[in-house]
């Protein structure tokens, strides 16, 4: 009796991993995440530009923080999530997990690019240089290359299942870079400032922190919405001949 119960509860959970179940579910979630991203971004930008005061050291240039920190955090976080799904796909041979990893990579790459670009434009007035070969900056550049490498490797292999496997190995190997980025400001003598928020407190003024956190959540919601839209497109592309897709497009 108990074994039947376990099996049925397991079934209800894994049901969502079935493409034809996941596709409409993801579609229903997208507008909510997109709306949350928009509302949080408006609130975050309002706090960031109209409530948070001028920084006594950096003047107005510090306002770059409201997109720099969220994009940098998302770039690192998305990489871990991408590697997780890639690893699940590799271990259990589940199609949807691998497609999830593929859906995350472009958004992660864009986040890494935004973090590097805003960092350069913040570095110039603060340090006097757009770019320095500092541990934090270099490891973030490597993160961008890992995303691009994942995308390129996946695109270079014709058979999607083999592409999933090869790209998953790359994603998993590259995950060592994430703690390197995070701890780089402690491990090496870097130009980049230390963490503004760490366990045990923050050094930021309350409205600055509030604006930054609102933007972090806005980026987070945006990334979820973008990834869900992309994974739905990938599902349609790769399951084009499956009965559920055929039924869907026939209306």
């Amino acid at each position: 009796m108990s074994s039947t119960a376990t099996a049925s509860s397991g079934f209800s959970l894994f049901r969502f991993a079935a493409p034809h179940v996941f596709y409409p579910l993801a579609g229903r979630m997208v507008p909510w995440f997109a709306a949350a991203a928009a509302v949080l971004a408006v609130a975050g930008l309002y706090v960031g530009f109209f409530v948070a005061p001028t920084d006594f050291q950096q003047g107005e240039s510090y306002r770059i923080i409201f997109i720099h920190v969220p994009s940098a955090w998302m770039a690192m976080f998305l990489y871990v999530v991408m590697a997780f799904w890639a690893g699940v796909g590799l271990a259990f041979n589940t199609r949807l997990s691998a497609m999830m990893a593929s859906a995350i990579a472009p958004t992660g790459a864009l986040m890494a690019f935004i973090a590097l670009w805003t960092g350069a434009l913040w570095g110039r007035p603060t340090w006097g240089a757009y770019w320095v070969w500092d541990a934090r900056l270099t490891s973030t550049l490597i993160l961008l290359f890992l995303y691009l490498g994942f995308i390129a490797l996946h695109a270079a292999i014709d058979d999607p299942r083999r592409a999933d496997k090869a790209a998953a190995v790359l994603a998993l190997v590259g995950v060592v870079n994430v703690p390197i980025i995070y701890f780089s400001v402690q491990w090496w003598n870097t130009l980049h400032q230390g963490a503004s928020i760490k366990p045990g407190g923050t050094t930021m003024a309350a409205p600055m922190l509030a604006g930054m956190l609102l933007m972090v959540f806005a980026f987070w919601m945006y990334a979820i919405a973008a990834v869900l839209v992309r994974v739905r497109a990938i599902l349609l592309e790769r399951e084009r001949r499956a009965a559920w897709v055929q039924e869907l497009v026939r209306g």
């Binding site: 107005e60 935004i114 670009w117 434009l121 913040w122 007035p125």
Partner: peptide, 20 residues
């Protein structure tokens, strides 16, 4: 004018908007 940091601040926000 952003206190003289217009290029840095708006360059950051502008590119982010374009990318998204």
């Amino acid at each position: 004018h952003m206190g003289g940091y217009a290029w840095y601040v708006w360059g950051s926000y502008g590119l982010t908007a374009v990318v998204l």
